[in-house]
Design a binder for these strands. Structure first.
Lengths: 118, 118
DNA sequence: GATACTAGTATACTTGAGGATACTTACTTT
DNA sequence: AAAGTAAGTATCCTCAAGTATACTAGTATC
C-alpha cells in the first residue's frame, strides 16, 4: 500500500464534529453554566447567578434558554413562595462531562506551568 | 461528619481552571487551528488556510501569533523559494489533545442524535 | 404601607471579534 | 516583462455578543 497524502478535504471531514460542538458551546458563558450545574446537581437561577461570576441576569436567562433548546439543561418550576426554578443537567447534557473534565484538567496544568514561570 | 453545603465561593474555585482554559482557547478559530495542526503534524500557512474552512489570512495570522505566544504552536521558517513557514504543535500544545478528542467525540454523538431526529 | 424575595424582562448602549478587499515583498517561471 | 507564488499586512467596516441599569409580577414579611 502506498502512503496516501492528507488533503484539506479529508481534514475538513475530521474537523466537522469539532465545529459542530463548538457551535453549541460557543460563547463566554455556556461551558461555565454547565460546569456549575454539574457541581451542584441542581440549582436555582439565583445560585447560578452567584456562582457564574460576572454574568448578568439577561445573559444567564438567554444562555439557559439556548441550553434548554439543545436539551442540555432542563427547567422545572417549583411551587414555593416566592416561586423558585430548578435547573438541572439532562442526561444528554451529562454527556458533555468529558469536555468539562478535559478543560478543567488542562486549566489546572496550565496554572502550574504559569506559576512556575512567574 | 456533618454534610457540608456547597457554596458559590467553593464553586468558583472549582470553576477557575475551566475559565483559565476558556480564556486561552476562546474564539471561533483557535481550537480548529489546533485540530488541523494535530491532523497534519506539520503544516504551511497556505495548507492551514485551506483546511480551516472560511478563515481569512488576517484571522489566521492573528490567531497563530496568539497560539505562539501561549507556546501551543511553533513557527519555523524554511528556506525554500518562495519561503514557506512550517507550523507545528509544541509538546505543550499536545497536552490539549484530550480537549480536542472530547470535543470531537461529543460532536460525533451529537450528529447521530440530530440525524436520528430530523 | 413599605420593603424584600425570586426569576426574570426591557431598553439602551458599547466594543471587539471577525469579515471583505486590496496590497506587499522577494523570488521564480514563461 | 508579465504573471505566479507564499506568507502575510493594511484598511475599513459590520454586526452580534456582551454590558449596564432599571424595571416587573406575585407573594410574604415587617
Amino acid at each position: 500500500m502506498e502512503k496516501r497524502y492528507k488533503t484539506p478535504k479529508e481534514c475538513l471531514g475530521k474537523l466537522m464534529p469539532v465545529r459542530d460542538t463548538l457551535d453549541i458551546f460557543q460563547g463566554k458563558w455556556k461551558i461555565q453554566i454547565i460546569s456549575v450545574l454539574m457541581y451542584y446537581d441542581e440549582c436555582s437561577f439565583k445560585l447560578l447567578k452567584e456562582s457564574v461570576k460576572g454574568i448578568t441576569s439577561k445573559m444567564l436567562s438567554k444562555e439557559l434558554k439556548e441550553l434548554e433548546l439543545n436539551q442540555l439543561v432542563e427547567r422545572e418550576v417549583i411551587d414555593t413562595r416566592p416561586v423558585t426554578i430548578r435547573y438541572r443537567i439532562t442526561p444528554y447534557g451529562e454527556s458533555s462531562r468529558d469536555i468539562i473534565i478535559a478543560l478543567y484538567n488542562w486549566g489546572v496544568e496550565h496554572r502550574k506551568k504559569i506559576i512556575g514561570k512567574e
